[in-house]
């Protein structure tokens, strides 16, 4: 700066220890310089003041409108030509699944070309298929295969497991079964949940697996098991698996919670796995002695009727399971499944 003053530095002939730069002289403060400096500092100061004004808040957190989603109704229109509940008995799992779905009108009634279909089996536990704590992998594979045949763009398989999800999907055989037919397992990662209004009497806003907001169709694939608190875990209770968060608190009011879940998630189709039934020590099981072969698949559109039908396999009656009557009262279905259009077939 100010090179012209360089020569004046030694005007008095003194020796400078620190070199000439230290005695450089400021540019004189002309009016123009003064105005420039004041404008610069004043401009900065005004900028700071404006920023401060814009940022000022008497509230520690600015109220933010959080978007809360609700779940879509995945059901298809009613059709009186076909059964509402179909039972298939036999040895061949795939054939039974095909037959049961055929009785309801065929997979084409439920899945259209280009659909994304989400399968929700029960994959709660790090258990092997024979232990019957999870849905039979052959049932998952058969339903996924049907969806592929109907032209589904993607078939996803998901659940919020109670044990480690990777171990549960692996040891239940469901991961391998899904991969074999070209379905994808969607694991529940900690960032895979979105706040969702369940609009229930007990359940309000809960974190729900995001895949349920991203799919066109939902197929419920529960397994029939005994449960120490609710008596049984069937189609309606299978919706526990959509929730994240502290869902262990639902046990404090389990029957209304099950009804709230079933009212919030209305699936396209339900295929109940009763090939093996865990009779005791549920819902986790572990001993093959507690497992009974039933070789049955029940498909249907009314979860209340399906649950009511499946109670017989556990030696229960509908009066022992309060959520069924509560669900009927809410208009979710019929406890008396015989009053519906139902069919039964022996396969093979």
């Amino acid at each position: 700066m100010d090179e012209q003053h360089e020569s004046e530095v030694t005007e008095k002939g003194r020796k400078r220890r620190h070199g000439s730069r230290l005695n450089q002289v400021e540019e004189p403060w002309s009016r123009r310089r003064f105005l420039r400096e004041v404008a610069l500092s004043g401009g900065l100061a005004s900028g700071v003041a404006v920023l401060g004004y814009l940022g000022y808040s008497r509230e520690a957190i600015r109220p933010k409108q959080q978007e809360v989603l609700t779940l879509r109704d995945f059901r298809v229109p009613a059709d009186s030509h076909h059964a509402t509940l179909a039972v298939a008995r036999g040895e061949q799992v795939e054939a039974m699944v095909r037959e049961a779905v055929q009785l309801l009108g065929g997979i084409g009634r439920f899945v259209q070309r280009g659909d994304t279909v989400l399968l929700k089996p029960n994959v709660g536990w790090d258990r092997q298929p024979e232990q019957a704590a999870n849905t039979n992998p052959q049932v998952v594979a058969a339903v996924a295969q049907l969806c592929r045949e109907a032209g589904a763009k993607q078939v996803w398989v998901t659940d919020c497991s109670i044990n480690d999800p990777r171990r549960s999907f692996n040891r239940s055989g469901i991961e391998a079964a899904a991969q074999q037919v070209g379905a994808q397992v969607r694991f529940p990662g900690s960032s895979d949940f979105v706040a969702t209004d369940m609009q229930g009497t007990v359940l309000k806003v809960w974190p729900v697996l995001r895949y349920f907001h991203q799919t066109d169709k939902v197929i419920n694939l529960p397994v029939v098991k005994q449960h120490s608190l609710s008596g049984c875990t069937l189609a309606m209770k299978n919706w526990y698996g959509v929730l994240g968060g502290q869902r262990n608190r639902l046990h404090q009011n389990i029957h209304p919670s099950i009804v709230d879940l079933a009212a919030a998630v209305r699936p396209t189709l339900t295929v109940v796995d009763a090939t093996r039934v865990l009779q005791r020590n549920g819902p986790s099981g572990g001993s093959l002695e507690d497992v009974k072969r039933e070789n049955t698949i029940v498909a249907g559109l009314d979860e209340v009727a399906l649950d009511s039908w499946a109670l017989g396999l556990l030696g229960l009656t509908s009066s022992q399971v309060p959520y069924l009557a509560m669900a009927e009262q809410r208009g979710l279905g019929k406890v008396e499944w015989r009053s519906l259009h139902w069919q039964e077939r022996q396969v093979g």
Partner: peptide, 21 residues
């Protein structure tokens, strides 16, 4: 960190502005 200039913290603007001059 908070996206706001909370209440009394606005007084700090005074120090900032004076420091500029």
């Amino acid at each position: 960190t908070s996206g706001t200039l909370y209440r009394g913290l606005a007084l700090a603007l005074l120090v900032v502005i004076l420091t500029l001059f």
